[in-house]
Amino acid sequence: MTTAIHLFDAVSRNNRWLSVRQSTIASNIANANTPGYRALDVEPFEKVLEATRLTLQATQPGHMTDGATKVTAVDVRKSEPWETTHSGNSVSLEQELINAGEVNRAYRLNTGIAKAFHRMLLASAKA
């Protein structure tokens, strides 16, 4: 039971990270013609996971927890650009579209896995 719940947690964390990444990609594409705009990317998921994994466990009723896991804000860092135009803009539309496709695929996989696990849980509950 706990492993399944842990899986749901992992899926939702990764999906939140992917959402932030998608919004960063949208921001890059929207600013594809803005002079001086540098393309951004989010930091890798492994790093986010490392930073947020160390949470205190409440093993006794008196223990206080910090509530739900907080993976809301993800640091945005500069990605290595494919090309930089004369105006100082480093957005490459192709690169952004490739990244967006990647995000979409990963998101689809995550929701698929969560759905399958949900089905399994329901099946065992119904039986």
């Binding site: 999906n15 959402s19 949208a26 594409i29 539309l93 967006a100 979409n104 998101y107």
Partner: peptide, 27 residues
Amino acid sequence: HEANRAYEANLQAIKQAREMIAMTIDM
């Protein structure tokens, strides 16, 4: 043409974000 291309890329980003929302609701 360049404006056209940038418009298409923006549309694509919107489309994918919408798809992701739809997938979440589908769960």
